[in-house]
Design a binder for these strands. Sequence first.
RNA 1: AGUCUGGUUCUUGAGUU
Length: 314
Amino acid sequence: LISWNSILSAYADLGHLEEATHLFEAMPERDLASWNSMLAMHIRIGDVEQGKRFFDQMPHHNLIAWNSMLSLFAQHGHLYQVLCLFYAMPLRDVVSWTVVISAQIHRRQFQEARSMFLAMPRHDLASCTAMAAACADAGDLDRFEQVLEEIRGQQEQLDLVSWNTILNGYSQLGLIDECKIIFEKMLERDLVTWNVILAAYARAGHLDDAGRVFADMAERDQVTWTALLAAYVANNMLDAAVALFDSMPQRHLYTWNAMLAGYARNGHLDQAKNLFDAMPESDIFAWNTLLGGWGAMGDVANAQSLFDSMPIRD
RNA sequence: AGUCUGGUUCUUGAGUU
């Protein structure tokens, strides 16, 4: 059963609905972990309706199943669904509370998140880390450091995620020197660590340091490339940005949007429009960027016609 | 021993503690 579940879990991680469903139905027996893996798959692919249906078909629910539903709503549903379920659940643990808090943070409801955080019966490393990230995001240094104090007082050892959160937090709070100290102190680093320190230098306007970090990195992903591109764009280094963009091994939507912003911000609306038309997909960020570019140029006609043709507006 | 849920990094603009 555990072997079956392991394979099922792998499909869930990859988001392979067909294979997972097939496997699930072919399994000689199933336990809660099997059902919960299927729920995890619905979280991954973001199918709230199917997920609900699946949940209702389950013979029993344990806390993980309830938390999975909570997480499905948190990531792909509405906040009121999260809260309704949270209060209706037969049991809650620290994970349940953390899911709710994260949902509130994602929706920028910091006050509410903080109230929940203070109300929960127990804090662990993950809940504190989520709260610390929120404080840094809100620019609240005092509360950020308060949460760090609490983390240091806990039994649980800091893990890499928490260290990365702290590093990024100081970067968001504008304390680049603190970032340097922490980065040097870190015994273990992963790709996120490197991406965070790269973005930290970029945010601080230390483009040379950002470039040096980039060159030193053993491994790079889309975030790495886009972070450096965005750094060039933010510092009006359009030529460098274009050269980097052209040399990139792969691009995702964030990358295209960053380049688009580079053109738009420098008044190169023709180039921006060409790039926009060449984009494999576009989202609200892309639309707003182009719209803002024309707006800034006083090109009301183009802005208006783009606005009228937008599939989504916010 | 090994399987299921929560926390960290990159893009536009507006708004909010």
